[in-house]
Design a protein around this nucleic acid. Structure first.
Lengths: 135, 135
DNA sequence: CATTATTTAGGAATCATTATTATGGGAGAA
DNA sequence: TTCTCCCATAATAATGATTCCTAAATAATG
């Protein structure tokens, strides 16, 4: 019932959130752990995982279940789409208006109760296009 | 260069493809292994994984990198979208026309070279809606 | 058939993630 | 302040999906 029952703001939790919000990349738990360790050298990877989970559950950050094998995290909680570069593996934001009517459309066509959708693009980022080799 | 350089068709490979094409579900490697074992009881899970990879690379089946922790496979190689039921975890096909212009749209807006997109819906399937409890 | 390269079964290894457990620190009561 | 109590942490073990490894089996080819 209580939206934020007991969210003790520990140093670790604070720093994790700060570091995540600093960057526009969408780091994995491991990457973020490295970033946080510059300020808290003794932090455990398990602590990072647990706090990322808590923070995303409470709506303060976003957990991105993008394609690939590793979960990624986003300090920007606004709903938006992403683009993955196949070459460098990076994940960037896409400035595209949200598709608002397809959920309704699919719901009517399929008989499913559609709660949302996930759209992501794959391609090559500008940096990787620049140093294009013959491959 | 050669589109199908040397694709030896072994019994295992044949059966894996047949069993996958039989079903409309989108089984995981483990599930498919169980199915295949009804005909080839001694098949190894590693063999299933390797052949699913080979078959998808050669374009004979589709590897679905849908959200969640397990890879899923589709015998239908036509490009189409999917819907995941949050309750039972099943993955179904969605009968929705492909979004053809957004790739171009995103490419122009972002400067990325957009090669494609992945769209999937989340919701509750008809079966799970039927036995709706108060939860 | 005999040769040769590929494939298989089985198990070990890997990688991301989650669970476990003993320890430590903070908030509130006495 | 000092004592509890509870939650958080660090470190590590455990899990689960996937990949890798190796000797033995098997398909293609002549």
């Amino acid at each position: 019932m209580d939206p934020t029952p007991k969210l003790r703001m520990t140093t670790q939790r604070q720093v994790i959130m700060e570091e995540l919000r600093k960057v526009k990349s969408h780091p994995t738990a491991g990457e973020l752990c490295q970033m946080v360790r510059r300020r808290l050298p003794r932090i455990s990877l398990g602590t990072v995982y647990r706090n990322l989970d808590i923070l995303s559950r409470s709506g303060m950050i976003q957990k991105l279940d993008v394609a690939g094998q590793e979960m990624r995290f986003d300090g920007d909680i606004r709903d938006h789409y992403h683009l993955r570069c196949l070459e460098c593996g990076g994940v960037s934001d896409v400035d595209l208006a949200l598709l608002t009517d397809i959920d309704q459309q699919v719901e009517e066509a399929s008989g499913f109760e559609v709660l949302g959708h996930r759209l992501e693009f794959v391609g090559r980022c500008q940096a990787c296009r620049r140093d294009k080799k013959v491959n």
